[in-house]
Design a protein around this nucleic acid. Structure first.
Lengths: 117, 117
DNA sequence: TCCTTAGTTCAAAGGTTATTGAACAATTGG
DNA sequence: CCAATTGTTCAATAACCTTTGAACTAAGGA
């Protein structure tokens, strides 16, 4: 439960943009946004890349302050840090998600069980 | 006047985000936005980095479809591709610029003459 | 024509990023 | 306890990015 996250004001715009500039990570964020409020575990994203690589990308998202990762049992529950991002960069997340929604990004999920919110 | 630019629908979101994820380029875009409508020449940005490096960053911005570069004499006139970006990714540029405006980014310009719009 | 101004291209160095497989740790169920 | 599930860490690799200085091109002015 104690994974390192930046505080809201440690979140840096260039860093967030750079992190979202990767197609795999953008797909993760897009999917998180589509299931907002529902914490998802990593296995949800295994369509996108290998388990090892996913671990890497999810760490990047967490370290940039885009996602929050909570350890529960052997799982990690991933959520978007929408409140913090909206406070720091109003409208940014929404426009990114909307833009990503139009574009055809890698699809994800479907055969996994959602975890209670 | 014939520098390679992507068409509006060739502009890719991950690419734009990645390109804006560099502090120097974000500062360039921020400054272009603050002088919107006024084409600026490269020398305006020499506070940010060396001439060579600036050439590199401006090429990145152009290739990603963020800026338009027009050759006039020995100058290059740089403008934001706001219309195309707004059409492709509504609200994105504005929220990025607003967010960049709050954050303290490298300042730029001041002692150069603006070119007529 | 010669020089200056404006910017590009090139090659190289150094750094960072993405990706992989193998090995590891931790929790949970039988 | 044993095994399966979930995910991380490590070392390695290949690719890409940023930055630099030197050499270059192209236009404009004296």
């Amino acid at each position: 439960m104690t994974l390192p996250h930046p505080t809201a004001d440690q979140i840096s715009l260039p860093n967030v943009l750079a992190v979202l500039g990767d197609p795999t990570r953008l797909a993760i964020v897009r999917y998180l946004a589509s299931k907002e409020g529902v914490p998802l575990n990593c296995s949800r994203f295994l369509d996108l890349c290998s388990k090892t690589n996913l671990s890497y990308h999810l760490a990047k998202l967490r370290e940039a302050g885009v996602t929050r990762t909570e350890a529960v049992g052997t799982s990690r529950l991933i959520t978007l840090r929408r409140d913090d991002l909206d406070r720091r960069f109003p409208g940014l997340l929404d426009s990114v998600i909307a833009a990503a929604g139009d574009a055809s990004l890698p699809a994800v999920g479907g055969h996994e069980i959602e975890l209670r919110a």
